[in-house]
Amino acid sequence: MTRKKSLSLRQALIAPLLAATLAVTGCNSAPSAPSEADWPLAGATIGGDFTLVDKDGKTVIWQDFAGQWRIVYFGFTFCPDVCPVDAAAIGGGLNRFEEMDAARAAKVTPIFISVDPKRDTPEVVGEFAAAFHPRMVGLTGTPEQVAAAAKAFVATYSYGEPDETGYYRVDHTAMTLLFDPDGKPVAILETHQGPQELADELAKWVQ
């Protein structure tokens, strides 16, 4: 699993949007609270309805999170490297944002969606998510439900061949996406830069 796929997708999504923003604002503009026009992902067709399952086996849809800023990440709990690092950055970053501004941080819900429903039962993904932040929601579903959710959020994944123990890797895009309370895409959060960077990004966007 590498970040190459994620980085190229990120560049394709935000390059034209970023160029347009720079052309409008100019280099000497005074800083101000970001509006929707300032969002790096403004107008991008990312996100949408899904039907998945939480740790208690309860059906969860995208609209259940209406009114909340949402951090969305697609991964799998058996991931040996990238996923736990990114999940730790999300959880740690939200913790730091809570220390900076508890009221705004309370508006943020982190969501971890498994792309490995064969191994990631609702209980497994729920425990995994909660280990990184008590409010992180772990979701999974049938292979068809997961595939539909991944398609809506521009996430891709594929399964490797099992080894002699039955373990297999899952290659997937590793993007951490921030959505506003209406479910509109705001920005890609740079989890690979650590929790403080993520906290600073949340402080910049969350109103």
Results as ranks from 00 to 15, higher is better:
1 M>T: 13
95 N>C: 01
31 P>L: 11
132 F>G: 01
108 V>G: 06
133 H>T: 13
133 H>E: 11
70 R>G: 05
105 A>L: 03
207 Q>K: 14
167 Y>P: 00
195 P>K: 14
106 A>F: 01
34 P>M: 08
103 A>L: 06
45 T>S: 13
79 C>F: 06
14 I>M: 09
83 C>N: 03
103 A>T: 14
102 A>P: 04
206 V>T: 09
39 W>C: 06
117 P>S: 10
21 T>A: 12
159 Y>Q: 03
92 G>H: 10
130 A>K: 15
171 D>Q: 02
77 T>A: 08
102 A>I: 05
126 G>I: 03
26 G>A: 05
112 F>H: 02
194 G>H: 08
21 T>I: 09
134 P>Q: 09
77 T>D: 01
183 G>P: 09
49 D>F: 00
190 E>S: 12
129 A>T: 04
101 D>A: 08
147 A>E: 14
80 P>Y: 05
145 Q>C: 09
68 Q>C: 03
143 P>T: 12
58 K>R: 13
103 A>M: 07
59 T>K: 08
151 K>C: 00
121 T>D: 13
41 L>E: 09
80 P>A: 06
13 L>M: 14
53 V>S: 12
99 E>A: 15
53 V>Y: 00
155 A>N: 13
180 D>L: 04
88 A>M: 06
38 D>N: 11
132 F>S: 02
116 D>L: 07
39 W>K: 08
120 D>M: 07
135 R>M: 03
67 G>N: 10
127 E>A: 15
10 R>M: 08
3 R>W: 10
191 T>G: 15
180 D>M: 09
54 D>V: 06
7 L>E: 09
97 F>Y: 15
146 V>A: 07
39 W>S: 07
5 K>V: 02
124 V>A: 12
97 F>T: 08
106 A>R: 11
150 A>Y: 04
104 R>D: 12
127 E>K: 15
38 D>A: 08
143 P>I: 06
81 D>H: 12
74 F>A: 12
40 P>G: 08
158 S>T: 13
23 A>N: 13
205 W>K: 10
123 E>P: 01
85 V>P: 00
80 P>S: 07
122 P>S: 11
146 V>W: 04
78 F>R: 10
202 L>E: 09
168 Y>I: 02
123 E>C: 02
46 I>S: 04
162 P>S: 07
114 S>E: 05
48 G>S: 05
99 E>F: 00
171 D>S: 13
83 C>A: 09
84 P>Q: 03
64 D>E: 08
93 G>R: 11
35 S>E: 14
182 D>A: 15
13 L>K: 02
157 Y>M: 05
144 E>G: 01
66 A>M: 04
178 L>T: 10
158 S>P: 00
62 W>H: 09
18 L>D: 13
163 D>K: 03
58 K>F: 00
76 F>E: 06
31 P>H: 03
57 G>N: 10
111 I>Q: 10
9 L>D: 04
107 K>C: 04
123 E>D: 15
72 V>Y: 07
168 Y>S: 02
188 I>L: 15
153 F>T: 06
62 W>S: 11
197 E>S: 09
24 V>G: 04
48 G>H: 05
33 A>G: 03
85 V>I: 12
190 E>M: 08
47 G>T: 01
38 D>M: 04
200 D>L: 11
41 L>V: 01
52 L>R: 07
143 P>Q: 12
3 R>C: 01
164 E>T: 09
118 K>A: 15
171 D>Y: 01
4 K>Q: 13
